[in-house]
């Protein structure tokens, strides 16, 4: 196995779980990033400020990482721009149509044993793996 970092992954994952737990127990909200962003892009009165605060926190956390753990932005693979644009469009559209992403479905929903989230998570891992197989093994890993 390549580049496997289980301890950092478990610890970082626990922090993500802690953050999502705080959102649930204190604010009563699901920490689903695609849903939080979508609610800022298409605001509903009275349901926007907390979303902006959360996203501001994400960016602030990103700035902290930049100082404390610059390796976090050692991306390793950056796809060419046309591919990134298509990827972004698919992620934006797909997370709205499917009502969630890795955080909302993959973490919060799976933890709640929501059948919708379990099915969604299995689905996006399978299609993600198929696309990676296509790009890395059929097209060659040159990109």
């Amino acid at each position: 196995m390549h580049n496997f970092t289980p301890i950092a992954a478990l610890f970082g994952g626990a922090l993500i779980g802690l953050s999502a737990s705080a959102m649930l127990l204190l604010d009563g909200k699901i920490a689903g990033i695609s849903g939080i962003l979508a609610g800022v892009l298409k605001p509903v009165a009275g349901d926007t400020l907390w979303r902006i605060c959360f996203l501001a926190g994400l960016l602030t956390g990103g700035l902290l990482l930049r100082v404390l753990l610059p390796g976090a932005f050692d991306f390793g693979i950056i796809r060419p721009f046309p591919m990134l644009i298509i990827a972004g469009l698919l992620v934006g559209f797909g997370t709205r149509l499917g009502s969630g992403c890795t955080s909302g479905h993959g973490i919060c929903g799976v933890s709640r044993l929501s059948m919708r989230s379990i099915v969604a998570t299995a689905t996006f891992i399978i299609t993600g793996a198929l696309v990676v197989y296509g790009v890395n093994h059929l097209m060659g890993s040159s990109v």
Binding site: I86, V91, F93, G94, T95, L97, G98, T121, G128, V135
Partner: peptide
């Protein structure tokens, strides 16, 4: 939606 998201995620 999840299938489309996954495709973009992998891409």
């Amino acid at each position: 939606g999840a299938a489309i998201f996954g495709a973009g995620w992998g891409l």
